[in-house]
Design a binder for these strands. Structure first.
Length: 422
DNA sequence: TCTGGGGTCCTAGGACCC
DNA sequence: TCTGGGGTCCTAGGACCC
């Protein structure tokens, strides 16, 4: 039987910014989504001001100004690099680790049962803090869902020192009573509504509810969540990530766009990004989907316009994919529409080494592979976007670009942007 | 005026077949 | 005029996660 520990970075993006700017400590700080649209991370001080997760920035402009909240655009290069450092540190404590997201990992501590697990957790927490500067909370339990519950309480409680061990079933009842139904892993807004309508408001009530009722209301997923709250594991450790099923690259625009030329640049650049990612993962796509979207808050419906291309041979060749992408976009494009977002999806992914070639394929694929290798080498060593296709556009300021008005420096991944000691 | 991006899984319903 | 039943596969939409 595994013992799950969830290690959860506190306010991760904000914590990353604080590592490199200690002046942000004890101050309200928020980090924004792409295009500086919504709040995606908040310091505890910002949470206390009532700033919600996912709130559009324009709705809280006054609040931000009034309390002098420090605002940052997303800096994914920085956060991705900090995440790697945290995960590497965790790997030193056990080989049985599942990296669940950029800021969370499950560890299997079954081999450490003879020690005091909470002590071991505190050791992990202190080490991560010392080596990376990132504060974490740790929850321990017999299922992933209970480990999540424990971490949630550990994060909020002042007395717990950031670690809570719920491996003893006698402690479940009290812990579950603290947890609002909407904070349970697997219970989102729709399930919360259904459960609250039936008078179920906390995790303890959910655990004790009639399982036939839960199955009927929430389906098999809800039932699993309930089982997990009862200490019966439905989800195991996934130490090796399953192969991905698809890949999406999309961005909304700084300003709305109404010309085919601009949309073409956006789509071509998303294809270039996605194809490079495919090559990095040694995959090729059998299907390309191109889509453009109008402003979903202004259009009554039907704001999504997409079209699918079945590729004759699975490919990760940027130039070939841009060719198909542009043909598709021309079919899709409508004059007099104002577009707010463009994107591409790759589906039917196959390992690049096992591509099924065509007898009468007109392309010299080996030659193109060598070209892509050279392209990737240059962009890896000189920075993404150093070498681009003309179709992606070359101008500095375009309406379709994404806004990042408050981005911090790439402290850890760019020699030009190292932190300076004064 | 201003509202992110990238994933997975489950389910219901339709098409199709025998 | 009567008018089955069951299996599989696919897709779209909904729900969830971070």
């Amino acid at each position: 039987m595994p013992v799950f520990a969830l290690v959860d970075c506190n306010n991760f993006y904000v914590s990353c910014e604080r590592v490199f700017d200690p002046a942000l400590r004890d101050r309200p700080v928020v980090v924004l989504s792409n295009n500086d649209g919504c709040v995606v991370a908040r310091s505890n001080e910002a949470k206390q001001l009532g700033i919600g997760m996912g709130v559009p920035v324009f709705k809280i402009k006054n609040l931000l100004a009034k309390h002098d909240v420090k605002v940052y655009s997303s800096n994914y290069m920085l956060y991705g690099d900090m995440s790697e450092r945290v995960m590497r540190t965790l790997c030193g404590f056990t080989p049985d680790i599942e990296i669940y997201s950029i800021d969370e990992a499950f560890l299997d501590l079954a081999g450490f049962r003879r020690q005091n697990l909470a002590d071991y957790g505190r050791d992990i927490r202190a080490t991560v803090r010392k080596w990376t500067g990132i504060p974490v909370s740790i929850g321990i339990g017999p299922t992933k869902t209970l480990a999540k519950v424990a971490a949630e309480i550990a994060k909020k409680s002042k007395r717990l020192d950031g670690v809570l061990d719920l491996s003893d079933p006698d402690r479940h009842e009290k812990a579950l009573g603290y947890i609002d139904i909407s904070d349970v892993w697997g219970i989102g807004p729709a399930f919360t509504r259904r459960l609250k309508a039936a008078g179920i408001t906390d995790a303890l009530q959910l655990r004790n509810a009639d399982h036939g009722f839960i199955k009927k209301q929430l389906g098999i997923t809800g039932l699993r969540t309930q089982q997990e709250l009862r200490g019966i594991p439905c989800y195991g450790m996934e130490t090796h990530p399953p192969p991905r099923q698809g890949m999406v690259v999309s961005r909304s625009f700084k300003q709305e766009v109404d010309t085919l030329a601009e949309l073409g640049e956006a789509v071509a650049s998303h294809i270039a990004t996605g194809a490079a990612r495919l090559r990095k993962e040694h995959l090729a796509a059998g299907v390309l989907i191109v889509f453009v979207m109008e402003n979903r808050f202004k259009t009554r419906g039907g704001y999504f316009h997409g079209d699918t291309v079945l590729l004759p041979v699975a490919t990760n060749d940027t130039s070939e994919l841009i060719g198909y992408g542009m043909t598709t976009l021309r079919r899709l494009f409508q004059k007099n529409l104002r577009y707010k977002k463009a994107g591409i999806m790759f589906r039917e992914l196959v390992p690049a080494r096992r591509i099924q070639y065509h007898l009468f394929d007109p392309r010299d694929r080996q030659r193109m592979n060598r070209l892509m290798d050279a392209l990737d080498f240059i962009n890896d060593s000189m920075g993404a976007g150093s070498l681009r296709y003309g179709a992606e556009g070359l101008q500095e300021e375009r309406r379709w670009h994404t806004a990042f008005k408050h981005r911090s420096r790439r402290y850890t991944t760019d020699w030009q942007q190292l932190p300076e000691a004064g």
